[in-house]
Each structure stands twice: as structure tokens, then as C-alpha cells.
């Protein structure tokens, strides 16, 4: 095998060799990315029978059905709010925690571990625990409030509050990861830079604002992109805590797709695929904007 490769070491031989090395990832991408993608586009133009088999070409009917469904636009709006409610507090909160940890307090290491801990929870576990906390009749959240003389709150049953409650759960889950990434980033800032700033008299917020945060911009940018994509794809916490309710208040685009395709015996893969294409476009546009606008402000060393 080796001998043959060496003998053939011309441009074509190298080309083939590179293809050989690429093959595993190409095969995996083809099976798990390209094929489903192609299938999604195909299904979005097809009607489905009761078993979920594509049975007839319907052109753009699925898109028309989707755009004619008020629930779809509501889901789009909910998705935008959910991104806002999770990405901003998640990244800003992570940054705040890291900066506080930097101020050389006692037990710094312990706090770092404690804050990173939620990262170790699976979505399902965290959601089940939060379901108990949020229970309107017997949950811990209302228990604490009652000691403060505040009456019960329907954390997950008030349509205006449910999305915020789910966002709190989501931020709690992602904060640990954000803290980890940012902590690593802070650790990588060259000591000379910080020392130079200190010599120039920069302390506290001035030091953070002028040195630490700009030096962390690659990590912050990474987290904003990743959290946005994660928020757009969140599913588990919504499914366990509210099933998209009350009255569709927490049904994001991904949940809407799930309901069309799989839940309640539905197998409307046509409309679900059409919505999946919309989700793809949304993710592409968001990532595009982030790379186009934000990345220019990122300071890479």
C-alpha cells in the first residue's frame, strides 16, 4: 500500500490520497448533513399521507400553508424573544461572573467550579428540576416568595411569564459553559499587558473596560454566535416545562417544527420541512450578520 502511494506520487496520486483521508468526514457529512438537507428540500415540496410518506408533489403549497398559519409567525416572534432573553443575559452574566472571580476573592477556585457546575447537567435533568421549582402550587420558587409575602406566581402558566421562566432555566444551564470559556480567555491574557495597564494607573472597571473585555472579544464573539445558534435550536426545556404552551406562548420555531412533524400523532413532514428551511435561513442570516458586523470589532492577537 505504502509502496504504491510513493511510486504514484504525482499530482493525481496526492489528490487521491487526500480524498482517502477526507473520506471518513465526507461520508459522515453526506449521511448526516447533506442527505438530510437535500431530503428536507425535497419533502418541503411534497404532500404526505397518514403514515408520513411523501405521496404527491404540491409545489409551494406547504410554504403557503405555513405562511397562512398565524401560529408560525407567533413562533418566529417567540424565537426572537427567546434568543434575546437567553443570549444577552447568558453572555453578560457569564462575563460579570468571570470579572468578579478575577478580583482575587477568597475561594476563587471553589466559586469557579460552582459556577461551571450547571454545565454538567443534561437539559432533561435540569428541566425536570426546574419543573419542580416552578410548580405553582408546591414549587420552591413560590415557597420562597410566600415568605416575602408575595402571592403565588404562575411561572409556567402565565403566558407572559412562561417564556421568561424557560429563559431563566436556559441561562442557568448555559452560564457554566460561558464562565468556563471566558475564564480560559482571561487566563490567556498576557500578564505584561495587564501589568502595563496597572502601571499606567488603570484599576477596577477601567482595567476591565479597556483591557480585559477587549482582550476577551474573541471568546465573547464565539459565545454570542454559539449561544444564538443554541437558542435557535433549543427544544428539551420547552418540551418538558410547557410543551410549547400556555396558548403557544413558548412554542419556538424548532418546537413548532417538532409539533408538525412528530407530536400528537402528526406526520406533516411537508410543512415541517418548509419550516425547517426557514429555520436554516434564519440561522444563516443571524450568523452572517454576526460575522459581518461583530467580527470586525473582535481583537484577535
Amino acid at each position: 500500500m505504502r509502496a504504491r502511494t510513493i511510486r504514484r506520487r504525482g499530482p493525481t496520486g496526492e489528490h487521491r490520497l487526500s480524498l482517502l483521508f477526507l473520506a471518513p468526514s465526507l461520508i459522515i457529512f453526506t449521511i448526516f448533513v447533506f442527505y438530510p438537507l437535500g431530503r428536507t428540500f425535497y419533502l418541503s415540496t411534497m404532500g404526505t399521507d397518514i403514515i408520513g410518506r411523501a405521496n404527491k408533489f404540491v409545489g409551494l403549497d406547504n410554504f403557503a400553508a405555513m405562511f397562512g398559519d398565524p401560529g408560525f409567525f407567533k413562533a418566529l416572534g417567540t424565537t426572537a424573544l427567546f434568543v434575546l432573553f437567553t443570549v444577552v443575559p447568558g453572555v453578560v452574566g457569564g462575563l460579570a461572573v468571570v470579572l468578579l472571580l478575577e478580583s482575587r476573592i477568597r475561594g476563587q477556585r471553589m466559586f469557579r467550579t460552582v459556577f461551571a457546575l450547571p454545565f454538567a447537567f443534561s437539559v432533561a435533568t435540569a428541566s425536570v428540576i426546574f419543573a419542580l421549582i416552578y410548580n405553582p402550587a408546591v414549587g420552591m420558587a413560590n415557597g420562597v416568595l410566600s415568605h416575602l409575602g408575595v402571592d403565588r406566581i404562575g411561572w409556567l402558566t402565565e403566558p407572559d411569564l412562561a417564556l421568561i421562566s424557560i429563559s431563566i432555566t436556559t441561562v442557568w444551564m448555559t452560564l457554566g459553559y460561558n464562565v468556563l470559556v471566558l475564564s480560559a480567555g482571561v487566563g490567556a491574557i498576557p500578564v505584561e499587558v495587564v501589568e502595563a495597564a496597572r502601571l499606567d494607573g488603570a484599576t477596577g472597571w477601567r482595567l476591565h473596560g479597556r483591557i480585559t473585555v477587549p482582550m476577551l472579544s474573541p471568546q465573547l464573539f464565539f459565545l454570542i454566535v454559539i449561544s444564538t445558534i443554541h437558542a435557535l435550536q433549543s427544544f428539551g426545556q420547552i418540551h418538558i416545562l410547557t410543551k410549547g404552551g400556555p396558548d403557544g406562548a413558548t412554542s419556538t420555531l424548532v418546537y413548532w417544527i417538532y409539533e408538525k412533524a412528530f407530536s400528537y400523532g402528526s406526520s406533516d413532514f411537508g410543512t415541517a420541512s418548509a419550516a425547517a428551511i426557514v429555520l436554516l435561513v434564519v440561522v444563516l442570516v443571524c450568523t452572517g450578520i454576526q460575522f459581518g458586523v461583530l467580527e470586525r470589532r473582535v481583537h484577535y492577537r
Partner: peptide, 8 residues
């Protein structure tokens, strides 16, 4: 009102 999930 504990909502739709029967677990709650």
C-alpha cells in the same frame, strides 16, 4: 392552574 403537563 398547574398547566398542561400532568406531572405538575
Amino acid at each position: 392552574n398547574t398547566g398542561r403537563p400532568t406531572d405538575q
